[in-house]
Nucleic acid binder design. Sequence first.
DNA 1: ACCAGGTGCTTCGAATCCGAAGCAATAACG
DNA 2: CGTTATTGCTTCGGATTCGAAGCACCTGGT
Lengths: 166, 166
Amino acid sequence: MANPSRSFDPTELGAYFALIEVSSLLRHTVEQQLQEAGGLSYVQFQLLARLGDSPEGSNRMTDLADGVVYSRSGLTYQAQSLEQRGLVTRAPSPDDERGTTVTITEQGRDTLAKVFPGHIAVLDELLFEPLARGDVEVLADVLGRIRDHMRSAPPRSAAPRRRKTR
Amino acid sequence: MANPSRSFDPTELGAYFALIEVSSLLRHTVEQQLQEAGGLSYVQFQLLARLGDSPEGSNRMTDLADGVVYSRSGLTYQAQSLEQRGLVTRAPSPDDERGTTVTITEQGRDTLAKVFPGHIAVLDELLFEPLARGDVEVLADVLGRIRDHMRSAPPRSAAPRRRKTR
DNA sequence: ACCAGGTGCTTCGAATCCGAAGCAATAACG
DNA sequence: CGTTATTGCTTCGGATTCGAAGCACCTGGT
């Protein structure tokens, strides 16, 4: 448990604020690019990208939701939207009847390919432009460690997981 | 202009993905904490925090919106909500009749004080726990540079700013 | 002083988002 | 096997979000 009376020094505050600001600004710009390049929201792009990267081109709903940090109901909404546009297909999982397997289509891959160059360009200009090679490495290392820590840490509410008291 | 045929190496991808993931996960957890500690959304907290930090305890709508990277209409919505709860007041700016000046109230400061310790605790556990002192410094430096770069870069669409053609 | 254009904010409508509740399939346990 | 959680997903309702359009004020050029 963290020290309750702890406070932050300017460096810590700076790191925190910069993190939030950078991700917000980046997300905002990326969203615009994706929208005009292929009519995709950021989440939709993330979903397609994940599917495109996976060896099978498919994933379960839950894994997708966890992967992009999204609510399940939100994912259902987006998956329906993508399905209607023909970018993915959905089918019950073979091994588990309740699971839904989402698979990227050829058209989905095309869309991905269409928006990708612009996506990279935005990242390059906005994120990497002011960084030296070493900065990128450090960033990947430190942020990677934070991510691993967050992913492994119990979601807080899961810690006590109080047994049904009644 | 960035090289259009450029691609990313694993380190760059890692830095990018980790950035997005970390900010998403962090935001999610913080949101929960703020919600149960004081019924605040993350944006609302950011707004109060900004007002609380400003010397006057007040700000123009536009500056607030830009500060937290939010749409103007969205800010109007949130400002109304905060006003109804008595956490801020709104009044036309003295020097410019069209401007609206938002000011934090005593009650707003109280709410801020109420949620702050928990907020810090979350950051401490989730963000800073796995980092050495040097990591924090590097993070603040690198992310800070990125932020400055993003803030100074023209919003892309503002570049041509095509004159009303008709 | 006028007026054309710019700026600051709000309103409006439609899209998106989440949590709670519901439903169906699976697992766990005797 | 039967009964009781648990898990995976969707549906539902309500809150939040944004961009476009609208309104009022302000500014620069004449």
